[in-house]
């Protein structure tokens, strides 16, 4: 078998090779190795504070790896020159954990700003796009509200609408489901699936919501706090039932005892 690190599989959208992430001397995670395929819905899981947001920040190029590399479509993202990197970043849509809407702009302006700067669409078309994006997340009619005047969950949804503004090739969402009621959260899962199907976007999500993990994800990585490296990668349903890492199984069952049927005889 060929060494995978020198020969990433052809359709791998994102390939992470031996990534070590650190803040100064503090190593958050080491030796991460995984691939995200085109049109995957890829979930990053793990306990609070284990480095999920940090991993996302590395993937979108906001932080440099301490070691290892990140390849987009086979090109080393971490080593490319700024211009090429900028072209990649243009194809990303990112929703930050705190929403990070620009508080001096209305919701409509928040979404319109990236569109205005990156396309030459006429104002009417931009306005239509903005109301469409807001309708998708269930916020139609809130165009003229400022982020401070709407609820936390609504901020989150508006952040998702902004992340989708440019029909990104890869959508990164940091805990989009946190702060949403079960119905909105369901609707969000629906939206993510539909976006993937209609626009062919690849989606990378940080989330703890087991229901939505099992509903939408077809691939995942589990970051293990205890060992400070990846616990497992693969389809979350299979990890729940067949992972050989007990921490992963426990996490995916919310710490409940494993049902006797799947308990391997000791």
């Amino acid at each position: 078998m060929t060494d995978r690190s020198h020969n990433p599989s052809p359709q791998a959208k994102i390939a992470v090779r031996g990534l070590t992430m650190a803040y100064g001397d503090f190593v958050v995670m080491r030796d991460l190795d995984f691939e995200v395929m085109e049109k995957d819905i890829f979930v990053i899981m793990g306990g609070s504070g284990c480095g999920k947001s940090t991993l996302l920040r590395h993937l979108i190029g906001l932080r440099e790896p301490a070691k290892g590399s990140i390849l987009y479509e086979g090109k080393d993202f971490t080593a490319t020159d700024p211009a090429e990197r900028g072209a990649f970043i243009q194809r990303f849509g990112v929703m930050y954990q705190s929403g990070a809407l620009w508080s001096s702009l209305t919701l409509a302006e928040n979404i319109a700003l990236p569109i205005e700067e990156n396309t030459s669409l006429p104002p009417k078309a931009i306005q239509d796009l903005v109301s469409y994006k807001l309708s998708l997340v269930g916020l139609s009619g809130y165009e003229d509200y400022y982020p401070a005047d709407i609820s936390g969950g609504m901020n989150k949804r508006a952040g998702i609408a902004r992340a989708m503004a440019l029909d990104p090739d890869i959508l990164f969402l940091d805990e989009p489901g946190a702060g949403l009621d079960p119905l909105s959260s369901r609707r969000l899962d629906d939206l993510i699936l539909r976006l993937r199907d209609s626009l062919g976007s690849t989606v990378v999500i940080v989330t703890h919501e087991l229901a939505s993990i099992f509903a939408i994800a077809n691939n995942s990585i589990f970051l293990d706090t205890a060992t400070r490296t990846q616990g497992a990668t693969g389809n979350p349903k299979q990890l729940r039932d067949h992972s050989d890492n007990p921490a992963v199984r426990t996490f995916l069952r919310r710490g409940e005892d494993e049902s006797p049927s799947s308990n391997s005889p000791s």
Partner: peptide, 22 residues
Amino acid sequence: DLRGLMELALAVPEESESGRKK
């Protein structure tokens, strides 16, 4: 897929914005 997106966009969630327009 387009139909799915349109259904999603047209569906008004429970906490409707009706009457909240400024």
